[in-house]
Design a protein around this nucleic acid. Structure first.
Lengths: 196, 196, 196, 196
DNA sequence: CATGAATGAGCCTTCATTCAT
DNA sequence: TATGAATGAAGGCTCATTCAT
């Protein structure tokens, strides 16, 4: 209807992507709105047409990042395959996802750090963890119910698995020469599975 | 030799402690040299007599933090007790250590994030991981050698255990209402032990 | 002549009224063109079709305000009534006018302040003062001529009366709990009249 | 005691004077902190060591200005001279004071305008008016008590006189070619006095 | 040794104004 | 005529760092 096409969604996306890139590269605090604008091919002032403050932009990026991670983890149509097989596939998917996200790792940990200071950020992270558990626990619970697994505490096992995977990522991030991300994640997963 | 007692070490310590506190409270980037000085009961300018720049101070604090953590983890005189028992004790010590460090958690994650950007920081973290492995792997290796454990890859298991513990800390930090740090760490440890 | 009705005058009026309102509410400097547009139900850019710059718009508003004030003051068909009575009526009309303009008072004083800096604004104010005198002096002169009043300097008296009324407004504006605008203006007028 | 003399009071004064000048010249809103710094021979950042924000600085300047005006007005040792004579002297002092303050007039009116918007500023102005009345009313009251003057309402007369003087200033400011400040103030004062 | 004092370099945010459609 | 979109130019405020005393 309008004489001009509405570019606002496009711009928003454009800015988010630019911000994601700049944040990942320079860190959230060091990233200047000007840089983000430049990366997006827009002027600094234009950013403020789409995001009221830098903090708002940070929040959006953060939510995006975790949502995208969760999306990658989600178990697709939990068929009837053996539970252990499903968990293996989950780990494999995670590995793939993390490989994709590797350049965003520093940003991820910045958000982790932020989550421990700003309640707004913590909320997002809390939901992330809850989602994570909500994905794994039922699968394990199913295995217990069907007798495929020992009578373990499904939620605790889910957390242990998630923790091990998350922790492996961390150790690998700091000592890639000591830790082979993929092999280690799969090995750790097998280890845990053998205990079920 | 000097007619006046050398207060330099004392001052250095004083500043480090103040900085640790201020960093933990406000975050590394938000912490102002002025705040640190105030906390130490010194003037902002005086800090520069002991630390050339804020970055240097950050580095020292970081090293301190990880050294202190490692110190807490180190297995004391690995007696000949069963390996599994030693690992249980390790986990227990870690839990205790983490409880002590709880107020420093945000700072810890800030350093993690930093480690992914600044090579100087990464080095410290890499050593930390290496140390971590160096503490656990031999114990596990011993267990394998003595036949107490299955013929597992000692290093990989050490990493898996460390990862799980580290990851549990993270999940707990963001969802303390879903994760009971102590119970979960011990549970996860048992789970892994039962796989060995 | 144009096939479409010329809305230009209507729009201009619409904008002026919106600007007057926004200026009065937020102050001239704080008022944003965007706000004025919003108040007028127009887009910010549209304002520029009718006023080249914000300064031009300010100038127009300023002229409007003073013209409207003068209009309210003007002595209607100075009958032959006693001069003192006419001056009383003038004061009464002024009081009424000021009551109507009360919400615009901050704006009025902003224009006063502006008048002392920008020559364009000063001009408007100079004319305002001249007009003010031009209204009162002849009436007083008449009274002197007719012998109703002492042989005073009509212009000086006019200025004194105007000044007193204007000054009363100021004092009342800042200390309404100490000054009753209407009573004080009438009292002051009587005081002056009793000196004529 | 300190190895260095405390320059803080000197600096504060230095900055206030610079700010007064820059505010008077460019207007409060247009004045940039940088300009004030330059005028004071200091860097912009240094200003913030002595004044937390620009608003605080504005407030201090405003208070200064009115305090200084009041100081100039204050009746010195109200001798027993005839009341009318005292009021004449008051007017004369005011004229002198205003001549001294002439360059600050635009600033004065800016503060008047501000007083109608910001409660903090209004407070200062309210006190100013109250002080003004508190200076004049007692003198007039004395005259009434002693029988020198008619039985007038001392406070109302004080306000009327103050208003006339204040108003004269305004009219003169905008039409100096029509109004002779000194002559007009004294004329207006005489007019009022002749009514008492 | 200590520090009061000062500042250069930055960064976020705002807004009057422009222009393609 | 109307406007959505964009921006250049500012300006307030902060802070790590320096240095004379």
């Amino acid at each position: 209807m309008s004489p001009k096409p509405d570019v606002s969604e496009e711009r928003t996306e454009q800015i988010i992507e630019a911000a994601l890139k700049v944040f990942a590269e320079h860190g959230v605090e060091k990233a200047r709105m000007e840089d983000i604008g430049a990366e997006a091919g827009l002027s600094k002032a234009t950013l403020y047409l789409y995001f009221k403050t830098k903090d708002v932009l940070i929040g959006v990026i953060m939510r995006r990042l975790f949502a995208s991670m969760l999306h990658g983890f989600r178990v697709p149509d939990t068929g009837e395959g053996a539970v252990k097989e499903q968990l293996r596939q989950f780990a494999a998917r995670l590995v793939a996802e993390l490989r994709r996200m590797q350049p965003l790792l520093p940003l991820l940990y910045e958000f982790y750090a932020m989550g421990l200071r700003k309640s707004a950020a913590r909320e997002v992270l809390g939901e992330f963890v809850a989602e994570f558990i909500a994905i794994l626990a039922p699968v394990i619970g199913q295995g217990v119910a069907s007798g495929e697994l020992r009578a373990v505490d499904a939620e605790k096992v889910a957390i242990a698995l998630g923790a091990m995977l998350e922790g492996t990522l961390l150790l690998w991030a700091f000592a890639p020469e000591r830790v082979d991300l993929e092999a280690q994640m799969l090995y750790g997963t097998e280890l845990l599975l053998s205990a079920l």
